[in-house]
């Protein structure tokens, strides 16, 4: 959780945010630059490598700009932006769009500290994890990916998705159970589970 990205605009000065809400060009550009890393990262975590990532980011900003006049600053900006990202990602997860634009799983970056072989192997395993999670519903998948890959707490995820904490915990639990069940049928995932358990 400590590695979860800290969004710089959380500490955004109210002055430029207010100007952005009024539609001032410079303030909007600043908003885009400040939030882009967070948006890309969340989309990457939720969807994995996608050929249409740029389109999805554009979609996030169109929705963000439309919703901006309604943002009163009651919640953190990261929550506001994160909610929009989750909405766009969930739409993109639906099978038609998802299957049409999904790139090869091998493009998953993996751990840069690992060697080239290990990175390829990690990317393949991560692809299998995502494939196993394809079988669970979007809400459960989103909650699990934010919890497992992004390191968010159930409370943070609940805030982002607009669900209760109990519902979020339940979604994570069921996605986790589905993943472990799938791992039992997949030799490579099973091997990774055993191996990673032995060498924490």
């Amino acid at each position: 959780m400590d590695e979860a990205i800290a969004l710089p605009v959380v500490r955004a000065e109210p002055s430029w945010l207010a100007r952005a809400r009024r539609g001032e060009r410079d303030a909007l550009e600043r908003l885009a630059r400040e939030t882009l890393p967070y948006v890309q990262r969340l989309l990457g975590r939720l969807l994995g490598p996608r050929a249409d990532l740029e389109d999805l980011v554009q979609n996030v900003y169109v929705e963000l700009l439309r919703a901006l006049p309604g943002f009163r600053g009651d919640s953190r900006l990261s929550t506001f932006v994160g909610g929009i990202v989750v909405r766009v990602a969930r739409r993109a997860m639906r099978p038609t769009a998802f299957e049409r634009h999904r790139a090869s799983w091998d493009a998953e970056p993996g751990d840069p500290a690992a060697g080239p072989d290990e990175r390829v192997s990690a990317a393949r395993r991560l692809a299998r994890v995502r494939a196993a999670l394809d079988r669970v519903g979007e809400r459960k998948r989103v909650a699990f990916l934010l919890w497992a890959l992004e390191g968010m707490s159930p409370e943070q995820i609940a805030e982002l998705t607009g669900a209760s904490v109990a519902a979020t915990r339940s979604r994570i639990f069921y996605a986790q159970r589905a993943l472990l069940a799938a791992a039992r049928e997949d030799p490579e995932l099973a091997e990774w589970l055993v191996e990673s358990e032995r060498n924490p």
Partner: peptide, 25 residues
């Protein structure tokens, strides 16, 4: 399991190239 998955995914995530970021901005 969460820790192992985080290790597997690594800290990095796919990101847009510089030109794409500029196009969005």
């Amino acid at each position: 399991l969460r820790e192992r998955l985080r290790r597997l995914a690594g800290p990095e995530c796919e990101s847009l190239p510089f030109e794409a970021v500029e196009r969005v901005v």
